[in-house]
Design a protein around this nucleic acid. Sequence first.
DNA 1: TTTGTTAACAACCAATCGGTTGATAAACAA
DNA 2: TTGTTTATCAACCGATTGGTTGTTAACAAA
Lengths: 118, 118
Amino acid sequence: MDRSDDSLLDKAFLALADPARRRIIARLSRGPATVNELAEPFEITKQAVSKHIQVLEQAQLVTRTRDAQRRPVHLNPARLEALTAWIDQYRLVREGQFRSLDAVLQSQATTNITKDPS
Amino acid sequence: MDRSDDSLLDKAFLALADPARRRIIARLSRGPATVNELAEPFEITKQAVSKHIQVLEQAQLVTRTRDAQRRPVHLNPARLEALTAWIDQYRLVREGQFRSLDAVLQSQATTNITKDPS
DNA sequence: TTTGTTAACAACCAATCGGTTGATAAACAA
DNA sequence: TTGTTTATCAACCGATTGGTTGTTAACAAA
């Protein structure tokens, strides 16, 4: 399903690679909030928070609505789920390899050393 | 368990925020590989791949062993699992809120506004 | 020894990131 | 109208990233 959203994965992982943005995610998990509300507990300016929200928005991790002059920010759980899905496809494959690792090692022990055949 | 590894989360998410490094992860999920083996299918130099591996290694997403002058790179599934754990704690909390949203709204309507108690 | 392979290290460069300040726009309230 | 709140836009700065080239080290093979 997720094939060509490479840049979207880029943006999403990059968005989470910042403690301030992760704290914003954590806060939004308890409900929507405005830029001012998000900026207050952080020791940075509103402009900086606004930039962080733009990064999260371009990664589609959050969405914005309108409420008069306020622009509440909402979490988008579907995008978070897409990230875990990407990670799990390799994490789980790897675990599957572990299950069959013994068989591989035994077959190699009877045929050859563990050297790479160039 | 994972409390103060903020910088480790930084490094891990930042490491995954690059398509080349994600392709390296995908490749390693099918077994260990050397720098040369990893660099070949990518149109960048070995030095660049070596840097990518350093980034992944500092994020503890991969480990390196010794085999003569080769340094095979191995995937570290435990770290991948830590990432999904971080994401899931907010993804799942959010879903839980949806289930109990009505109750929360009703109780708040009778007690107070949605302001955070400092 | 010499030669070739594997990989890291160092220095450098263009581009990007996180943050700031200052100005601006939009939606109200008076 | 004027003023206030909310939030964005624009320009700028220091630090970091991703990539390169060149060099060096460690080991294998001859």
